[in-house]
Write a protein that binds this DNA or RNA. Structure first.
Length: 130
DNA sequence: AACGTGACGAGGA
DNA sequence: ATCCTCGCCACGT
């Protein structure tokens, strides 16, 4: 059950970022087994097969800024999507200290981590409660 | 094989 | 905080 490629693993990790939280390219790569593969995440996200619905907008630079070209259609779309899930984007940047996804912490606080498609898991994003 | 290219990241000036 | 340089890693020329 592991003959996938590195891209597949990165796509899966990306898909497990809960709504309302964000992650950095390097963080995704690390979780996918590539400690220094930040650029792999960038490459993988650039070629996500059409039809596969991934939350690509939840991936930002480690400093919280939008990686896509400022002002580009894609960049604005990313901001729209983030705000739609209550993630504050100020001046093209998100406060990672507040919105960064912490898988380990999530599990510690709320139990079994969110896996889209997996029965019983729900949206645990902070800004979404109440 | 060498070299250039990124939706990157860390560290120093 | 901003800018620059370098290291990284898979790929295309």
């Amino acid at each position: 059950m592991r003959s996938d490629g590195w891209m597949e693993r990165i796509w899966r990790v990306t898909g497990s970022i809960p709504a309302g939280r964000v992650a950095s390219y390097g963080q995704i790569a690390q979780l996918a087994g590539h400690p220094r593969g930040a650029r792999l995440t960038a490459r993988a996200l650039a070629v996500v097969p059409a039809g596969r619905d991934l939350p690509w907008h939840r991936v930002l630079r480690n400093d919280g800024t939008i990686a896509l070209a400022a002002g580009s259609h894609a960049a604005r779309e990313q901001v729209r999507r983030l705000r739609r899930e209550r993630v504050a984007v100020v001046d093209g940047r998100v406060d990672m200290a507040v919105f960064r996804w912490r898988p380990d912490l999530d599990e510690l606080l709320w139990g079994p981590v969110l896996c889209p498609g997996v029965r019983g898991t729900r949206d645990r994003s902070p800004e979404r409660r109440r």
